[in-house]
Simulated assay, not measured.
Amino acid sequence: MKGLRLKYRTKEAIVGYLFAAPVIISVLVFAIYPIFAAFYYSLTDYQPLEARKFLYVVDPYEALELHTGILREEAKNYTLDDILQNFDPVQFVQLDLGVNLDDSEKELVRQYFDSASLVSDFREGKLPKQIKVSDFMKRYMRDFGHKFSKYVPKFVGLQNFRDIFKDKLFYTSFWNAFLYSLIVVPIQTLLAIILAVAANSKIKGVGFFKAVFFLPAITSSAALSMVFMLLYSKPGVLNKILVALFGRFGFQPIDYLNEPGIALFAIMAMNIWSTAGYFMVTFLAGLQDIPSSIYEAAKIDGANSFQMFWKITLPLLRPQIVFVSIMGTIGCMQVFDQIYFLVRNLRNITISYYIYKNAFEYGKMGYASALAVILFAVILTLSLIQRRIINEQY
């Protein structure tokens, strides 16, 4: 019986893992692997463009014609030595094949590239019309062809991290992200609680207001950014309203997104408005779990609305407040899309946007990975601190 029971449990476990396999594989590929890859690349000088240099497809005939000045049809009219006299393998690989070589690779090409075989195949028309650079180098570097088949970034150890702490833009972007979180998280949390309390009240048309409050949360961030770009522009609606109200006192239109002292705060206001409705749903669920008998007892004891909110509602919403503050902090420390669409100067960028610029504009993926590791460590530390606070309170 025990054997049968064990066999049944084994089969049950296998079936369970098979059903869970798509989710497990997705988590491993899209969540776990990128984390380990980021840690690895943070210790290298990985460059995305260099990573593809051996994957390009080239026409070897065209490359040799450019290098030697001899047309394919005329190559047989020249001797092997005549062509080799003007053939430089390093220049050929770098300039005509378009492969950037470091010093060690140049030395290998200079010593071991089989120029004679290449020129002979060129004269006899034995070259393929198109070939990948990696396959071409395997063919004519022979014993050392494997060194040119795959890009391997140079290991630099902790050099990227040393460079980060000398980088002024790192401090600027990190401080902007921290300031963003420090201001946005408390305000959006408080506003979400107020909206949830309003949405939970039994008044006519409350369903409509719930939909209106939540609408920004389901609207594309790009679309919201475009709307606020129009609102914040110098001839925009916001300036027109302020001029109408305060023009007599000397108010002049402001270009909010191009003023370094104002731009980040303008984006904060947009983020608070667009996310408060999303977190409202969390607090609304928490409010509906609070027994109405508690409020009825408080009313009998003579408590007013403010006292019930402060002494009953807020304490009983503590789990939701902690959850929202953690999620809000993570989101604000990683804020990217609004900065990408709206910020026009480097003084107002956040750390996530600075990571993007280094990785995809400057081509410094290793340095960007090191920045991402630091951001990961900061967010993890903040989350653990908040988690510790939860354990102390419950």
Rank of each mutant, 00 (worst) to 15 (best):
D301C: 06
D301Y: 05
D301M: 03
D301L: 03
D301A: 10
G302L: 00
G302H: 00
A303P: 07
A303D: 09
N304G: 13
N304W: 07
S305I: 10
S305R: 11
S305E: 12
F306W: 15
F306V: 13
F306I: 15
F306N: 09
Q307W: 12
F309G: 11
F309I: 14
F309S: 06
W310Q: 05
K311P: 04
K311Y: 03
K311A: 03
K311V: 06
T313F: 04
T313S: 04
T313C: 06
L314A: 12
P315E: 13
P315V: 05
P315W: 07
L317T: 09
L317Q: 14
L317G: 09
L317V: 14
P319V: 05
P319C: 06
Q320I: 02
Q320C: 11
Q320G: 08
I321F: 05
I321K: 15
I321S: 12
I321T: 15
V322W: 08
V322G: 04
V322T: 11
V322Y: 06
V322Q: 04
F323D: 06
F323Q: 05
V324N: 02
V324T: 07
V324L: 08
V324C: 10
S325E: 03
S325C: 15
S325H: 01
S325V: 12
I326V: 08
I326P: 15
M327W: 08
G328W: 14
G328S: 09
T329G: 06
T329H: 04
T329A: 05
T329D: 13
I330G: 00
I330V: 06
G331C: 12
G331K: 07
C332H: 01
C332G: 01
C332S: 06
C332L: 01
M333Y: 15
M333E: 11
M333P: 08
Q334Y: 01
V335W: 10
V335L: 10
V335R: 05
D337H: 00
Q338H: 09
Q338V: 02
I339D: 00
I339K: 01
I339W: 00
Y340M: 12
F341N: 02
V343K: 10
R344L: 10
R344G: 12
N345L: 04
N345K: 06
N345V: 01
N345E: 10
L346F: 10
L346W: 10
L346E: 07
R347C: 09
R347G: 14
R347P: 11
N348P: 15
N348S: 09
I349V: 13
T350V: 04
T350M: 13
T350Q: 14
I351M: 13
S352Q: 00
Y353D: 06
Y353M: 07
Y353K: 05
Y353R: 07
Y353I: 09
Y354M: 01
Y354A: 01
I355T: 03
I355G: 05
